[in-house]
Design a protein around this nucleic acid. Sequence first.
DNA 1: ATCCTATCCTGTAGGC
DNA 2: TGCCTACAGGATAGGA
Length: 288
Amino acid sequence: MPELPEVETVRRMLAEHIPGRRIAKAIVSRHRLRSETLAGLPRRLEGRAFAAPRRTGKFLFLDLDDEHTLLSHLGMSGRWLFAAAGEDSLDASMPHVHLRLDFADRSRLWYQDIRRFGMLRLVPLSGLSGDPSVRLLGPDPLEHPPTTESLFAGARRSRVAVKTFLLDQRKLAGIGNIYASEILHRSRVDPRRLAGRVTREEWSRIAPEITRVLGDAVNRMGTTFSTYRTIWNEPGQYGDQLLVYDRAGLPCRACGAPVRRFVQGGRATFWCPDCQRGPSPARKRPKA
DNA sequence: ATCCTATCCTGTAGGC
DNA sequence: TGCCTACAGGATAGGA
């Protein structure tokens, strides 16, 4: 589900509501998440108050007032859901809730994750940059917009397809499967091209599209493909803007030609062969 | 060092 | 209707 625009949407909304709120009670109702357990969280969260949440790539840092941060990754199906005091539209009946935080002012925050691929980990601020997941992250494209040269240099020695390259969080933190296809489509670059062979001229088209697509998606509160919701349980509005993603066999929204789907690195790629005609598609060279 | 595959988990959609 | 399979916005361990 959540790529940079969805996570940024959640961050912005949380930023309006959680800073200063103090956790009166924390309840773990489903402790196993990915490989870790949440069992120890309540003792460490109760009594703490939130500061302003931050984000790098798809990771949220929910800073607390005790020099710790609640490191959050939504995986495929994670959600943060908020309810103001007295607003009980969301409740204990919700399935797959891992954590509920009851604030002193009676407002509430839930973490729900159907597939349990998300992450919640309390980390000291002093150790955050050394956290095994955070340590590997490349630059966040909204904070540090990629340039033709940074992309060209970063991909120079890569032998994976450019689509796969865009998904590598060590190179750029935040692009996921939906926006990778959309960015390459708008850049008119064939997703099969090897990253190390993509020309400067092509990177010069890709760089601004990364910033533009992600920024536009943030402005529309992200894309709801199936499970993503804002903290108010609302879907994102960027789905209307998708030109190729999830449109296999349907007309490309730019040129009308049928969109094609194929699998790269185990993940679906959507592309328009008409719009994305590369100089030379990746080609297997027969062994000499 | 890189790259690739399988795996974690649950729900849903589509074919029969 | 039910059963079965394939697939879904992700990261990462382990083997090649």
